[in-house]
Simulated scan of single mutants.
Amino acid sequence: MACETDGGQPAAGQAMLDLNGAMTDVYGVALAAYRGRMLATTPVILALFDGAGGRMLLYRPGCPAVEAPTVPIAYQYLKAVAHSTVAVYELAHHGDALSAGASGVLSGLAEANERALASVDELALDAGDARTAGTVLALNRDFFSRATAGRIAAPRDLAAYARECVPHVVRLMDRAAALQVSHWMTVVEQWRASLGASWTSVHAAVNTLYVTRQKNILFTVLAQFMGEGAIGERLLLFETPEFTTAPERMLDLLARIGADRELGGTFFGHPRVMDVEVLGDAARTAIRGEAGRRGMRPVLPTCAPYDSNQWPWSTDPTGGSAPCMLPALLARDPDEASGDSDDA
């Protein structure tokens, strides 16, 4: 009988697993080295999602990060008023027979709404924006007034409230978006001018929640200046489960992608092979076979080329010149395969 380790793994098997652990250690050291080289040679922009309209940081080679000014505060005022209707809806929708605790939340929301309504004219808002904000806050107040004796309005009243709010909320969103987009277009335009010829080598990364991945504002603004050809190549969208992401975490992920592209070009003949899970190609073939044996129709994503510039994800099989599966890539004439990467 083979000796076993404390983890219940045969010693020979554990030795094999230790090999993967050793790889991870080496990979971590190499990643730190790549990140240092990247920041020393390549301009980098990080665009971070937050409640104030976003953050952008510019890393010039060898220089500390420069953070852009924030979006004008009016953006947050308009967004806060629009979001107040969400709070009203959620409280009403989920609290028909309000508990004592929920009643306290309702009172707190009503009081906050009154303070906001009283302050509208004191804010540095466009006159039209102030009127729209005041209208929404007044609609909130009218709805609160119908909440009596710990009982919120009936569903039909909630629906009527929502219909009344929608035109005004849409105007608030339009104005907030105009402020946000104008601000970031100006920032990126200025950065492009300051970087001069090196703009064509800039790499940018944007973090996104699930709900913002398809119409991500910061990513779309950057795409206007970096061009469609940069999407997926030098302009990257990182989906995360967190509302905010630390710049250091973003830099680590950007460095990992760049380092993996060097590795992918060396081993497989194309730098973007490892932008997707390499094992996924083999698994795709295996799933197709297993599904066929079971009489099932395989449910698989479109096989798009590795070098596709589509966003928010690659779906068009004609959207690039590279193969979409590793076997086809490896079958190419090496003289036709480009292992060179524009990455740092």
Rank of each mutant, 00 (worst) to 15 (best):
A304K: 02
D335I: 02
A110Q: 02
A124C: 02
D333H: 11
S194A: 14
V276G: 12
M185R: 15
G54E: 07
G196D: 05
A133P: 01
R55Y: 02
C165W: 09
H83K: 06
A133V: 04
R249M: 13
G51M: 01
E114H: 04
V29D: 14
G258L: 03
A147P: 00
S308R: 00
E90A: 05
M173S: 12
L326T: 00
A11L: 12
V120D: 05
N207P: 13
L117F: 01
E239K: 04
R35Y: 04
T70C: 01
H93L: 15
T148Q: 11
M226L: 14
T302I: 03
H83F: 12
S314R: 14
T135Q: 13
T220K: 11
V71P: 02
T244R: 15
F143I: 01
T42G: 00
A322N: 07
S338R: 04
L179I: 13
V278T: 09
A177E: 15
A286M: 14
P64E: 15
Y89V: 11
P247N: 04
G54K: 09
G128D: 14
V166K: 15
G295F: 05
L263I: 15
A160V: 07
E239C: 02
H168P: 07
R163C: 06
L139E: 06
R131G: 00
L48W: 01
L109G: 05
V273W: 00
E189C: 06
L58E: 06
A92M: 08
A82K: 10
P69S: 07
A178F: 07
E111S: 08
P323V: 01
D129L: 09
T208M: 14
A110N: 03
P155K: 06
A74M: 06
L58T: 12
A30K: 07
V71I: 01
P312T: 07
F243Y: 11
T315M: 06
D126F: 12
A178E: 13
S84Y: 05
V278M: 10
C3K: 11
T318W: 01
M23T: 08
A40R: 10
M185H: 15
F238V: 00
L125T: 10
D333S: 12
D25L: 13
V136Q: 08
S107A: 14
A11Q: 04
L137P: 12
D25T: 12
L19K: 10
R293I: 02
P43H: 06
T244M: 04
E228Q: 09
R115Q: 09
A149M: 07
G289S: 15
G258C: 06
A204T: 14
L222M: 10
N20D: 08
A259F: 13
L222E: 07
A149R: 13
P61I: 03
L218F: 06
R115M: 09
S308T: 14
A291Y: 05
N216L: 13
A74F: 07
I287K: 10
E122T: 11
Y161H: 13
D307P: 02
R37W: 14
R35Q: 15
L139D: 03
L251H: 09
P72T: 08
A322L: 01
L137S: 07
